[in-house]
Design a protein around this nucleic acid. Structure first.
Length: 464
RNA sequence: UCCCCGAUAGCUCAAUUGGUAGAGCGAGCGGCUGUUAACCGCUAGGUCGUAGGUUCGAGUCCUACUCGGGGAGCCA
């Protein structure tokens, strides 16, 4: 690694002799006897300008044939730029072509504007564009920031399993994991497939949530989180859903819903603030090209308090709003996207944490409130995306938990180890799930979730 | 899964009431310029998503399918 990254070259002092390696973004020739090459290596938003004089030995044979996407190595001196648009540039003393673009006419990621839909079809080349380079860097920054946030608060990062033999995570359709011959599976006497003969000796699936697993570690290490891939086999075709996505799930012991909501608010503010300073270049790009006002919105969120609002009061506000909704608002039914968006985008114009939902529309593990009608659940709603976090205080009382499992007709024996946590030193605890891609979406202003993950998996979409 | 919209050159889009395809960008060549989404000229490039149907004739109308987009549901 005896060359300089573009981001470091950009901020170095003129006069230094440096070597750069990267890919050509554009080339412009000048009859003054030189060519301008914009070079990027993915380390920052802006490419660096390389000036290639025509006395280089390969000027006509190679340099004038460079097109977008070619990989080159440049030796030269960092100098103050004579032109406008950049403060420094590299006056090349040698340019070596590392890799040509074999047919520039059909190069799929040429230096022009492409639609995001098209770039999704060339997902192996789209990170070379300024938008997807920026997304990759922001994803990294947010990931590190999440880990930093929890580490600073002495949370332990727990690696929960990807494959689960429990069919009881209860958060949606699961992908089956099996080594049985799909064309000729072993059968039982009643004709059903005999999973006793499968790899794990029972049915297995890809996880839809690390929550139940991470609760076990919470009941021992007090403050934990998991951050890993999750899978939902739902036939969801929206700009907010993926079949494979990454989820951040903290779990805190000796805590209630208010503690949980505070943690969620603190975390979001922390990562937004971190992002605005660490990736100022990329955020300026998103603010200018993707969503004007983005930086101001995020800065505002960092400064403002998130509103806490019980579901029952939200229903009241919606019913009295005078706003025409496609779906009627009724206590006891879940709020529709239009309702959530009205609250966070129009009525309060800031993030809203809705709490205490009717028990009938929420999961079995959420703690029953004293009114016995609602549970200690919360959704964090943000403008533009809607629900970004879902969480709850967990039911720590075994008798109440059992009653809820029965009420919902769930298989109690499947939860034996989960129920054990309530039998052996149970404590009030709470946690939430944050969809990482939704966080990236919100942070960048990107409209479609398939554009904020390197290789999106969705119904009928698993190329690459 | 449901509703609506779309699919034409490498990319982004045109094509009047059905009369057998055009532009811009990109690419190639040339010109011009310390250029920077450069600019100017010329050239090449298309069995109009797939399969049927209506018609003398279909990019255009009809049906099915595939894929893409927006919205809804499910949720993160």
């Amino acid at each position: 690694m005896n060359w300089v990254q573009v981001k470091h070259a950009m901020t170095s002092k003129p006069g230094e002799e440096i070597t750069l390696k990267g890919w050509v973004r554009t080339r412009r020739d000048s009859k003054a006897g030189l060519s301008f090459i914009n070079l990027h290596d993915g380390t920052c938003q802006d490419p660096i300008q390389v000036v290639a004089p025509n006395d280089l030995p390969n000027y006509e044979s190679e340099i004038q044939k460079l097109t977008t996407g070619c990989a080159i190595e440049v030796e030269g001196q960092l100098v103050e730029s004579q032109g406008k648009g950049q403060s420094v540039e590299v006056k090349a003393s040698a340019i070596r072509v590392v890799g040509w673009v074999e047919d520039p006419d059909t190069y799929p990621a040429s230096a022009k504007r492409h639609t995001f839909e098209y770039l999704r079809e060339v997902a192996h080349l789209r990170p070379r564009t300024n938008t997807f380079g920026a997304i990759a860097r922001v994803r990294h920054a947010l990931s590190m920031s999440v880990h930093r946030f929890f580490d600073e608060r002495e949370f332990y990062y727990v690696h929960t399993p990807i494959i689960t033999a429990s069919d009881a995570e209860g958060a949606g359709q699961m992908f089956r994991v099996s080594t049985l011959d799909a064309l000729n599976p072993p059968k039982k006497d009643d004709g059903s497939i005999d999973y006793d003969q499968d790899f794990f000796g029972k049915e297995a699936h890809l996880t839809v949530s690390g929550q139940l697993s991470v609760e076990t570690y919470c009941s021992a290490l007090s403050r934990v989180y998991t951050f890993g891939p999750t899978f939902r086999a739902e036939n969801s075709n929206t700009s907010r859903h993926l079949a494979e996505f990454w989820m951040i799930e903290p779990e805190i012991a000796f805590a209630d819903l208010a503690d949980d909501a505070q943690l969620a608010e603190d975390m979001l503010k922390y990562v937004f603030k971190d992002l605005l300073t660490r990736r100022a270049d990329d955020m300026a790009f998103f603010d200018k090209r993707i969503q004007p006002g983005l930086i101001e919105n995020l800065s505002h969120i960092v400064e403002s308090d998130f509103l806490r609002l019980p579901y029952t009061e939200a229903v009241d506000i919606l019913q009295k709003s005078g706003k025409k909704f496609e779906y009627k608002v009724d206590w006891g039914t879940d709020l529709q996207s239009e309702h959530e968006r009205f609250l966070t985008e129009e009525h309060f114009k800031r993030p809203v944490i809705l709490t205490d939902y009717p028990k009938g529309i929420k999961a079995f593990y959420m703690r029953l409130n004293d009114d016995e009608k609602t549970v200690a659940a919360m959704d964090v709603l943000v403008p533009g995306i809607g629900e970004i976090i879902g969480g709850s205080q967990r039911e720590e009382r075994l008798d109440v938990l059992d009653k809820r499992i029965d009420e919902m007709g769930l298989p109690k024996d499947e939860y034996w180890w989960y129920r054990d946590l309530r039998r052996y030193g149970t404590v009030p605890h709470a946690g939430f799930g944050l969809g990482f891609e939704r966080l990236v979406q919100f942070s960048t202003g990107m409209g479609n979730i398939r554009d904020v993950i390197p290789f999106p998996r969705a119904p009928k979409q698993a190329e690459f």
